[in-house]
Design a protein around this nucleic acid. Sequence first.
DNA 1: CATATTAATATACATATGTCTAATTAAATT
DNA 2: AATTTAATTAGACATATGTATATTAATATG
Lengths: 218, 218
Amino acid sequence: MSMNAAKRPRGRPSLSGPSPASDETCLDVALEAFAERGYEGASIRDIAAASGVSHGLITARFGSKQGLWMAAVDHGMSRLHQRLVAVEQAQSAQIGVEERMRTVCIRFLETVAAYPAIVQLMNVEGSRPGPRLSHIVETFFRSRSWPFATLLAEGQASGLFRPIHVSVPFTLLAHGAGALVALRPLVEAVNASLRTDPEGLSRTIEAAADMIVRGLKA
Amino acid sequence: MSMNAAKRPRGRPSLSGPSPASDETCLDVALEAFAERGYEGASIRDIAAASGVSHGLITARFGSKQGLWMAAVDHGMSRLHQRLVAVEQAQSAQIGVEERMRTVCIRFLETVAAYPAIVQLMNVEGSRPGPRLSHIVETFFRSRSWPFATLLAEGQASGLFRPIHVSVPFTLLAHGAGALVALRPLVEAVNASLRTDPEGLSRTIEAAADMIVRGLKA
DNA sequence: CATATTAATATACATATGTCTAATTAAATT
DNA sequence: AATTTAATTAGACATATGTATATTAATATG
């Protein structure tokens, strides 16, 4: 971000003089870099240069490239989460659940469009579950308070939405339908109730196709 | 794929003896590798070893890493395309367009699930349009005969489907809704009628959310 | 004021990677 | 049969990268 290419002197920075980029700034830069060029494509040196610090500082602060990556994911994820919770809490319960769901979807997509990196990272990580993808998925599903799941449950309780496992529309929304690709490692990583054998996968595919044609309505 | 690690001798291969991996085999291996580990993460040497050939042969056949990548994309794309066209042609026109659309969606997702690499590559390429992403997108949109677009137009002509630009459900289907992320570079790359300014993006987002809630039905 | 600690830069190093070139062997051509 | 061409492997080389270490300067501590 900051094109602060003016080389600072060695040693501990002066409190009066210009301080180097904060951890947050570095994580923003890193998230963008990882999302744009992939884990291998983004180098520590590039990220450091774009943050206006030396590459040694990155490893000093975050330990390793893996450490930087995990910190960046946590950073982006918490921002997305906070945004969504705020949206749902700002909504009046007077409004019907369908309309609230629609709003949450819109806000979600808007937020994602504004901070694409965090969702992009899910895809960048590839189609097989590895330690990095697992870290994202666990972070995503850990908190049960994501408004999307809450609203889906509410709509289902009132019979307005079809009974469908939360991970199906959620995956459709977050990863996308094309990420049915990603459903397999997603499910394996979360150990959800959905099955990954051919028959289970086939039923999941049909459910996803139904959603595209008929939507969420009962 | 082929764990043919038995080192072949130098020089032109004998016609009687075992021949090295075909171009197709190499492209299959490459597609999988690129999808799984990203463009930078997949090395020519790894791909060559997994194909059972020397790394020099890869560059000799495909010119460069970029050349290998483009050939792999063309390879996977044509396979996906052929599969979808075959599905649509096998369907009787007696069946309603909605049911045929549903089938095509299912077959599309099934095919993608079976060959995830090609869609995965779209995401791996990151959130900004570069030469590689542009190549995929152009290949995707070049042929107007993709059954999805045909069926959508047919359903719209009969008033069964809502009027919506083909790229919206297509993106929802192929990239996924989360790939609204990817819609921006997608649109820029294709220079479609959809706009990428905030207002246009907002309308696109609302349209996508409508699709999730109400589905394709009129 | 002297010393230890902290926070940063810079350098060193082994390894991996894309590309280019040489070497080698079988087939094709004359 | 001799020679050229094609197809493949192997090695060379410059560059980039992650990590480990040395260096430097400002602050904290006594």
